[in-house]
Nucleic acid binder design. Structure first.
Length: 421
RNA sequence: GUGGGUGUAGCUCAGCUGGCAGAGCACCGGGUUGUGAUCCCGGUUGUCGCGGGUUCGACCCCCGUCACUCACCCCA
């Protein structure tokens, strides 16, 4: 073992789990397509400076978690650690912000962060993302949240909790940071180097510390909502009202902090209580300043990313993993060389007609071939031996009831189709 | 980056005080010369993570190392 293992923190998904992963992706993207979101295919790596400027130099993601390397042309490139920055860049590149607004887009694919792997955290992981740009209408914030909520519900998850918060406008945040810094310094200052650095650079992050002693020391910390400007407050209240109108339950979380620097105003997180340390299965927020941060025009936006791998873990935890799909609807059991050739032809014809069909390979005996039929999940088996070929018929067996009847070979395809379609 | 735990068959794991390498599942075949999912019988799969040490003898004890895993941190 080890000789053929993938790199650290990079998972393989093989059947049947890979089928469940695909089902999760499908469930996440289906609501988006119904809501008019267009598909975005993005590069998996970009110029390093794009992420540095977009995500923020002070964020942990940029400062210590990026897969960065130099290409043969001596350019510094980075495997994308998230999708929003690339999505905004692509929109600006194509000039979509000059067209019909809002621009609503979705994407899906692997993201990369150089972290220590643990449950729910891998170096390569898959996200489905959605972004809406070009308006700061709070209804759009609510719509996106509702679409994520719908995705999780459609998968059968019932225990997911939506946390909703706001980071205010930049002035609110600066104002609040100042206050919080003053409040934190006498209480948790000097605890350790990392905490001191955070108090200095981004005091909001201290509120996210999970260590019990820090938790305890900060329960009474002042809240950002206390200093919210009129406009930001109105936006937040509008989002809350829209969510209620849409029937999406949420939990007000005034301490909700985001790790990426571009967030402002609305922030939210879908948390699953059964997951352990990495329990956020989806998160997002508004990023009205991001476009300008990467050199673009003013362009408000809101979006989210859902963790496909983590959602799969949540399905495990709630015991609602989808059944793997049957690999075939009809399974052929050929006995003899001539019967095998004929079976292969019939299988091909059925497949052309949209029927999932397969057959027993490798000259297996009757018993083994029937076993393979059973395991394929097929509803019907077709037994075809040289004896049947001479009679011009095949034995069609209903694998659930066990009933079996002879069907003329000329009618076999239409008979099978009639039973299945 | 820091700390704890675990490495034995394809998978899940047992292996006593240091004394022949095991079970269940899975897979293949047979019982039924042409019928699965149940049952019975048989069979295949091992560098006990790797390297060294102690010992008459090491899966077991010691040292090192690698991998995996959980947690901190961070985040989807």
């Amino acid at each position: 073992m080890g000789d053929f293992a993938p790199p650290k923190g990079v998972p393989d998904y093989v059947p049947p789990r890979s089928e469940a992963l695909l089902a999760v992706r499908e469930a996440m993207t289906a609501p988006l397509r119904l809501a008019g979101y267009g598909y975005l295919e993005l590069p998996v790596f970009e110029d390093t400076s794009l992420f540095a400027r977009g995500v923020g130099e002070t964020s942990d993601v940029v400062s210590k978690e990026m897969f960065t390397f130099t290409d043969r042309g001596n350019r510094s490139v980075t495997l994308r650690p998230e999708g929003t920055v690339g999505a905004v860049r692509a929109v600006l590149e194509a000039g979509l912000e000059r067209g019909a607004l809002p621009v609503k887009l979705w994407y899906a694919g692997p993201m990369f962060r150089y972290e220590q792997p643990q449950s729910g955290r891998q170096r390569q992981f898959t996200q489905v993302g959605a972004e809406a740009m070009g308006t700061d209408d709070p209804l759009l914030d609510a719509e996106l949240i509702a679409l994520a909520d719908q995705a999780f519900r459609s998968l059968g998850l019932t225990q997911t909790v939506l946390h909703l918060g706001t980071l205010g406008d930049p002035e609110d945040r600066a104002d609040y940071s100042e206050r919080l810094r003053a409040w934190l310094t006498p209480r948790v200052g000097g605890l350790d180097e990392e905490t001191d650095r955070r108090i200095a650079k981004n005091p909001l992050r201290v509120l996210d510390d999970k260590r019990p002693e820090v938790r305890k020391a900060t329960v009474d910390a002042p809240l950002l909502t206390e200093v919210l400007s009129g406009a930001a407050r109105a936006h937040h209240e509008a989002v809350r009202a829209c969510l209620s109108d849409l029937g999406v339950p949420f939990l007000d979380d005034p301490r909700l902090v985001r790790g990426l620097d571009y967030y402002r105003r609305t922030t939210f997180e879908f948390v699953h209580p059964l997951l352990g340390a990495q329990s956020t299965i989806g998160a997002g927020g508004r990023y009205d300043g991001l476009s300008q941060a990467i050199g673009g025009p003013e362009l408000p936006g809101v979006g989210w990313a859902l963790g496909v791998d983590r959602t799969l873990l949540a399905l495990d935890a709630e015991g609602v993993l989808p059944e793997p799909p049957a690999r075939a609807a009809v399974f052929f059991v050929p006995l003899g060389v001539a019967a095998k050739a004929r079976s292969a032809a019939l299988v091909a014809e059925l497949r052309r007609g949209g029927v999932a069909a397969d057959l027993a390979y490798g000259d297996r005996g009757m018993k083994g071939a029937m076993k393979a039929a059973d395991r394929s999940g097929a509803s019907y088996a077709v037994v075809l031996g040289d004896r049947d070929l001479e009679a011009g018929e095949a034995q069609l067996k209903d694998l659930r009831s066990g009933e079996q009847a002879a069907v003329p070979l000329t009618d076999l395809v239409s008979t099978v189709k009639g039973k299945l379609l």
